Every structure is written in C-alpha cells, then in structure tokens.
Computed example of a mutant assay.
Amino acid sequence: MKSINTALCSFGMSGHLFHGPFIDVHPNFNLYGVLERTKNLAQEKYPNIKTFRSLENLLQDNAIDLVVVNTPNITHYNYTKKIIEAGKHVVVEKPFTVTTAEAQELIDLAKKHNVKLSVYHNRRWDSDFKTVKKIIDEGVLGDIVEAEFHYDRFDPELSYKTHKETPTEGVGSLYDLGSHLIDQALQLFGMPNSVFASLDSFRKDSKVGDYFDVKLYYTSHYVTLKSSYFVREPLPAYSIHGTKGSFIKSKADIQETELQKEIKPNTNNWGIEPESEKGILHILKNGDFNKAFVNTEQGDYMAYYNGIYNAIANNKPLPVTAQQATDVIKIIEVAIQSNQEKRIIEL
C-alpha cells in the first residue's frame, strides 16, 4: 500500500508534539496537510506540508486518507462526523467526545461509511504504565486488592489557552487528565461495577474542574484515580497492592520531554527512563519477603501509529477502538453524576 496521506486539524501542542513527529518519520505515513486558519506554523517545520484554511477545503482534497482531530474537546464530535461523512479515516484526540451518545453516533457512522475510527489514548504506551501492566500480567502481586493512580501537578495559574478555562462541556481536568487514568484503569481491570467521585476547583478564579478523586468499585478490589494541581512533592503515580505484596512506580515517562526537545521518535534510546526511576516490587516469595527494583519498560508512542497503519492497510484490529474510548466517556459521565448527587452510581 502507498503511504497514508495524513492531515492534522490543528498545529498546536498536540500537532507539534504528539502527532506531527510520529507521522513525519513513520515510513508508511506522509504528513500531507494541516488546517491552520491564519498561520503557517506547520510549514515552518515541515516545508512540504499543504496548508488548508478551512475543514471544508481539507475534506475536498481526495488525496487525504486519514485526518487527525486534535482540536478543542467540544469540537471533536462535529469535526469527526464531517470527516467520516467525507469517507476518510479518523484519529481523534482524547477525550473522544463529550457524551457517550455522541460517541455511539460516530461509531455507527464509521461503520456505515466503512472507515476506521480510533482515539489517541497514547498513555497506554508510557514507559511507567507499560511496566505496571507487565507486573500485573505476571501475577506476582497475587490477587489485586487495591490500586491508586495519580496524575498530579503543581500549577496554580490558569492556562493561557482560554478554551481550557472556559466553563463549557468537555473541559476540566477530569476530561483532560482523567481520560488518561480512566483508560489505563479500564485496560488493566475492565469496567467497574460502580463509581463514586469528588470533583472540585482549587485554583484562584478557576471556573473549571482542576481536582478529581474517582473511586472505581470492582467485585474483588478498589481503584482510585486522583489528580490535583496543588501537589508540589510528587506521590507515586502507581501504587498496586495485592495478596502477595505491592508495586510502586513513579510517573517518569520521558517521551513528552524528548519531543519538547525536538528529539525525533526514531532515534536510539527513545523513551528509556533514567535508572533512578525504577519501580519497587515488595512481595512474598517462597516464604520470605523480597524487595527489589524493577527495570522500566521502554516507552513507545510509535506503537500507536504502527497499529493505525496495520488497521488501514491490512485490516488488523485498531490499537485503540472507539468503543474503548466510549467506555472512558461513560466513566466520566457517571463520575460527574456521582459528584452532583453525592452518591455511588451503579453501572
């Protein structure tokens, strides 16, 4: 198959860091176009890229095979719907949509038009999460009793990106950071039986949520997902406790940092964490407690685009399905309801 001509719907942080570099160096993709209404930032970095001034003009170009929807959350549904109706494959930035109703409509529409629809839950390929998943899959912790995931920051100031601070549907840390943690939890444990959540805002003059504490209740264990903008001293990103012991891991994936330094994702030693960030495994083994450091898996966001290529070119399973991403939105909806009603919500 020829290279997959791919267009971005914007060239902000997402296009500059998380999509452009991977599409550019991937041998089976061609970074063909970008939607920029007034600027030419993408052309400064990629001189051969084609600039479109409207989504309509972009969709009229029959050479485009795949479009990446990396615009503000509230636009995901409308943009994706138009792209599907134009007969092009779509990658949507997380969160997929604002509501599960929107998500299901897009899933049905993609089936009708026979196009691939995936959501960019790239944090499945973080080095730290890959290490956690490996430990759990190996079963060395025994039966999982409790897990706690954190995505914390110390950032009291409001974002300069006004769309992130304007109280509209789909904004706030639960949609932005929570999408990552929820997707990771569902990948490890599946859908929970019920949910309880506390959502709040602590930054001065903040009009959108910047704190969440979401509890996922399973038959045999509990999972807590937390994020705050007022955590100066980092807590472990992952704390997993089972009947045979515990695993503790810091949040230390370096891929975003490498991308910010303009390091290309096809370079040697890509995504390898510092030795100092090894996880701690403390378990009961052969009758004795054994505490050891665990080497971190290599981070690899390129695996997502490898999967997208194989799905389009070879009809292989998508690396992230739209249904999986819809489950994330379902948890967000239920968490919002739980916070409003101050009760546990059964799924």
Results as ranks from 00 to 15, higher is better:
88 K>V: 11
89 H>R: 03
91 V>D: 04
92 V>A: 01
93 E>T: 07
94 K>G: 07
95 P>Y: 06
95 P>R: 00
98 V>L: 06
99 T>L: 15
102 E>Q: 09
103 A>M: 01
104 Q>G: 02
105 E>L: 00
106 L>H: 09
106 L>R: 11
110 A>F: 13
110 A>W: 10
110 A>I: 15
111 K>Y: 08
111 K>W: 11
111 K>F: 05
113 H>G: 09
117 L>F: 10
118 S>N: 04
119 V>N: 04
121 H>Y: 15
123 R>N: 08
125 W>D: 11
125 W>K: 04
126 D>H: 12
128 D>R: 03
129 F>Y: 15
129 F>R: 12
130 K>V: 13
132 V>W: 04
133 K>T: 08
134 K>F: 01
139 G>P: 14
139 G>N: 13
139 G>E: 11
141 L>M: 03
141 L>W: 01
144 I>D: 03
144 I>V: 15
146 E>S: 07
146 E>C: 07
146 E>V: 12
148 E>Y: 05
148 E>H: 13
149 F>M: 07
149 F>T: 05
150 H>V: 04
150 H>Q: 08
152 D>W: 09
152 D>S: 12
153 R>S: 11
153 R>Q: 14
153 R>P: 01
155 D>M: 15
158 L>M: 00
158 L>F: 00
159 S>L: 11
160 Y>R: 02
160 Y>A: 05
162 T>G: 02
162 T>I: 12
163 H>R: 08
163 H>V: 15
164 K>G: 06
165 E>Y: 04
167 P>R: 15
167 P>A: 08
167 P>Q: 07
167 P>E: 09
167 P>K: 12
168 T>E: 14
171 V>S: 02
173 S>H: 14
175 Y>M: 05
176 D>K: 06
178 G>C: 01
178 G>D: 00
180 H>C: 10
181 L>D: 01
183 D>C: 10
184 Q>W: 08
185 A>S: 14
185 A>W: 03
187 Q>F: 13
188 L>W: 07
189 F>D: 10
191 M>N: 15
194 S>M: 09
196 F>V: 13
197 A>P: 11
197 A>N: 07
198 S>M: 06
198 S>L: 04
198 S>N: 01
199 L>Q: 02
201 S>L: 13
201 S>A: 12
201 S>P: 03
203 R>W: 09
204 K>H: 08
205 D>A: 09
207 K>F: 03
207 K>G: 00
207 K>S: 05
208 V>C: 03
209 G>F: 02
209 G>E: 09
210 D>Q: 04
211 Y>R: 14
214 V>G: 02
215 K>T: 04
216 L>F: 01
217 Y>P: 13
217 Y>R: 02
218 Y>T: 10
218 Y>P: 03
219 T>K: 14
219 T>N: 08
220 S>M: 14
221 H>M: 12
222 Y>Q: 14
225 L>N: 03
226 K>P: 02
226 K>D: 11
228 S>L: 11
228 S>T: 08
229 Y>A: 12
229 Y>C: 04
231 V>C: 11
